[in-house]
């Protein structure tokens, strides 16, 4: 089921397994620093999904699904909820919808914490969910 046609490669498989943690950590790094340096939820999400897409190619879609553990569509929904809640926090704390709220906490590398950061995390998950839904669905062979 779901093998990359005529391209079974042990090397690719091994390399992917080594690369995956690196890619995922890198994607989270891109996400978190995105507010102050190149990066952000879109790029981070794409890099993270590339990691799983590589796994789907080198091994199989099923292996990639199992490694992700969560159904990608749920990831997408979760991301949408997080992004929406970031907007709602602005509304509920007396401002308008999607008005930024900054509690005043500052961390190294990431910078100040606030609802835009939360929103970016939502974007991250939507992009991951979207990309993997598409990749897994299209790469799944029906025969």
């Amino acid at each position: 089921m779901a093998r990359w046609p005529e391209m079974e490669s042990v090397i690719l498989s091994r390399a992917t397994r080594l690369m995956m943690p690196v890619l995922i950590v890198f994607s989270v790094f891109l996400l978190l620093r995105g507010h102050n340096a190149p990066g952000g939820g879109f790029v981070g999400g794409l890099i993270a999904s590339t990691a799983f897409a590589l796994l789907a190619i080198s091994d199989s879609v099923d292996v990639a699904r199992q490694t992700l553990r969560i159904e990608p569509r749920r990831v997408m929904g979760f991301g949408l909820l997080v992004a929406l809640s970031a907007g709602l926090i602005g509304l509920l704390s007396g401002g308008s919808f999607f008005e930024g709220v900054w509690p005043g906490i500052k961390l190294p590398v990431i910078g100040k914490l606030g609802t835009p950061m939360l929103f970016d995390i939502g974007v991250f998950f939507v992009v991951v969910g979207f990309t993997l839904t598409v990749v897994f669905t299209l790469l799944t062979e029906e025969d």
């Binding site: 879109f42 794409l46 992009v127 979207f130 990309t131 598409v134 669905t137 299209l138």
Partner: peptide, 20 residues
């Protein structure tokens, strides 16, 4: 453009699925 790139990819995926 950044969002356009990502949306464009979404469109591409959709049209590919449609073609298939």
């Amino acid at each position: 453009v950044l969002t356009a790139i990502v949306i464009g990819f979404g469109l591409q995926a959709f049209t590919l699925a449609l073609a298939k």
